[in-house]
């Protein structure tokens, strides 16, 4: 039976924890709003880019398509770009991305392929290095970045394209969490090289005029497309992270509230029991006289 003092201390400590989780929830809510706005602002660019690319790709097909678009024809070495958060305490956000990546890694390894991993974000690296340390090429640290800009995405894209041109890998896949709503984030794997182009409407096959020529436009557009896809993944990830943290902290706050209620009840009961016991002792003492 814990003493009254023990109970009091326990209640105080849970209350302090609840205050922290409550504050974290509110901070996450504020950050979420900003991250969500940024993710939504980036969507039109990415979707326009896709449309333009689909249009161009429809014109160029077969053997003269650039390697970034169609791949280099091999399927042996896979690069997995795993984007996670830099911080924890956000529910299953990081682990669900890592789980998806891990499933892919295992199935690729089982098929006898070579796997290379590029980690963006510390948390994914920490979870992946336990089993796959020798596969990890590099970790991109974005902890010092306060506001995600296109520049960061461009830097990662340059790295990826550089590796591709050196023949370090054949197929690249991007792992991130798509933001659907505060309570629902979907871990997603997206093909990056070769480019994943939805067949789309495919409608406007009008005679386009290109300046400079088609191939040249395509060759500048493709690297840019990779940067844009990475940028979008980072923004979606940022919004998802805040959403996941917000709901995780909301749960934690609620659990703490419940615990406080239970402990307080227990505290009051044992206090009352003690008073009753003392009264009985006094009364029975008086009666004995």
């Amino acid at each position: 039976m814990p003493s009254l003092k023990d109970l009091r201390n326990r209640i105080a400590s849970v209350k302090a924890t609840q205050k922290i989780t409550k504050a974290m929830q509110m901070v996450a809510a504020a950050k979420l709003r900003r991250a969500q706005a940024a993710a939504e602002a980036a969507r039109p660019y990415a979707s326009k880019m896709e449309a333009v690319l689909a249009n161009l790709a429809a014109g160029i097909s077969g053997s003269d398509a650039p390697a970034l678009l169609a791949g280099n024809g091999k399927d042996q070495v896979h690069l997995l770009i795993v984007c996670t958060a830099e911080r924890g305490l956000c529910g299953a956000f990081n682990s669900s991305i890592v789980r998806l990546a891990r499933e892919r890694i295992n199935s690729l390894l089982a098929a006898g392929k070579t796997v290379k991993i590029l980690c963006v974000g510390k948390k994914g690296f920490e979870q992946l290095k336990r089993n796959y340390e020798r596969h990890i090429l590099e970790v991109v640290d974005l902890r010092s970045v306060k506001y995600l800009g296109y520049g960061e995405a461009e830097m990662i894209a340059t790295k990826v394209i550089g590796l591709f041109e050196q023949g370090e890998f054949d197929v690249a896949t991007l792992f991130y969490s798509r933001f659907r709503s505060v309570i629902s984030q979907i871990p997603t794997a997206q093909g990056l090289i070769p480019a994943e182009i939805g067949s789309g409407e495919g409608g406007t096959k009008a005679a386009y005029e290109y300046e400079p020529d088609e191939a040249e436009i395509l060759s500048t557009l493709l690297p840019r497309n990779i940067a844009v896809q990475i940028f979008r993944a980072l923004l979606e990830n940022a919004a998802s992270e805040q959403g996941a943290r917000m709901s995780a902290m909301d749960n934690a706050t609620r659990n703490a509230g419940e615990m406080i209620k239970k402990q307080t009840q227990k505290y009051n009961r044992s206090r009352q029991a003690m008073i009753t016991k003392e009264l009985i002792e006094i009364i029975s003492g008086a009666e004995a006289l």
Binding site: V52, L56, T204, A206, A207, Y208, E209, Y210, E211, P212, E216, I217, T220
Partner: peptide, 19 residues
Amino acid sequence: PASEGEITVLANHAPFMSA
């Protein structure tokens, strides 16, 4: 500002794409 000089786009311009 297209790569090979400025162009002005008006309504009903022919399909065109430029860096």
